[in-house]
Design a protein around this nucleic acid. Structure first.
Length: 223
DNA sequence: TACCAGGAGAAAA
DNA sequence: TTTTCTCATGGT
């Protein structure tokens, strides 16, 4: 795998293997924000259960969540794990959106400031770190930010594109350098494709045999 | 039974 | 400043 253009090559191979992607598994921008918090160190299938619980009580809105007793909200979030922590983090996000005057239409947040300013504001919210902030910016607000997650690191490491010690910002900058500045769709699709690969093949116990990247993967070559 | 999952914040060193 | 610990359910 060449150093220059490595992620571009990966994108091409994965898109051919998995087809075009345009996703975050959510029915609204606010649901995408909720999912970004609930999926912290958690498998998505467990997040889906918690979101289904919220939907069942019609609580997928800022005001509905803020109106719920904290204990009730925690019980609804229980299937996603870390539920007491995530309750506090979700409420912190809701209070932030209310403070910004976009509680009724969280997607309007994107119109309030530049992308760097929005990112800084999100990072100041309790429970929102770099990955969660970038997931919200890309998937809920449709802004051009590359999300770096555990899948990205694992796949990049096995392909020889990433070294272990790189910080979140360093990994992100390296990927951004290969992307057009305002290309939201490619950032969305690349991350979605990496998630697909990570779930199906590039796992902690990898299934290299039929992996689309088998031919150019250093890990597969050494196994 | 043990490991792992789309992190982040707090505490300890 | 950096490293380690804690949070927790559910699937493989």
């Amino acid at each position: 795998m060449p150093e220059q253009g490595g992620w571009s090559a990966v994108f091409g191979i994965l898109e051919e293997a998995f087809g075009p992607q345009d996703w975050w598994p959510a029915q609204s921008p606010f649901e995408a924000m909720v999912g970004a918090i609930l999926t912290q160190n958690t498998a998505w299938r467990n997040v889906e259960k918690a979101i289904a619980n919220l939907r069942a009580v019609d609580a997928l809105s800022v005001r509905a969540l803020l109106a719920l007793p904290e204990g009730d909200l925690a019980e609804l979030l229980r299937p996603s794990g870390f539920y007491r922590i995530k309750t506090r983090r979700l409420l912190a996000l809701c209070r932030f959106l209310e403070t910004r005057g976009v509680g009724a239409a969280p997607e309007q947040l994107a119109r309030q400031a530049t992308l760097p300013a929005l990112r800084k504001d999100l990072l100041a919210v309790h429970g929102i770190g770099a990955e969660t902030a970038d997931s919200i910016l890309l998937y809920a607000l449709g802004l051009p930010v590359m999300v770096v997650d555990a899948y990205t690191r694992r796949i990049g490491g096995r392909l020889g594109l990433l070294e272990d010690h790189l910080s979140y910002g360093e990994v992100q900058a390296g990927m951004e350098a290969e992307l057009k500045p305002d290309d939201v769709l490619t950032r969305n699709a690349l991350h979605a494709l990496l998630v697909s690969l990570g779930k199906d093949y590039c796992r902690p116990r990898p299934r290299c045999g039929s992996c689309p990247l088998h031919a150019c993967c250093a890990h597969a070559a050494g196994s």
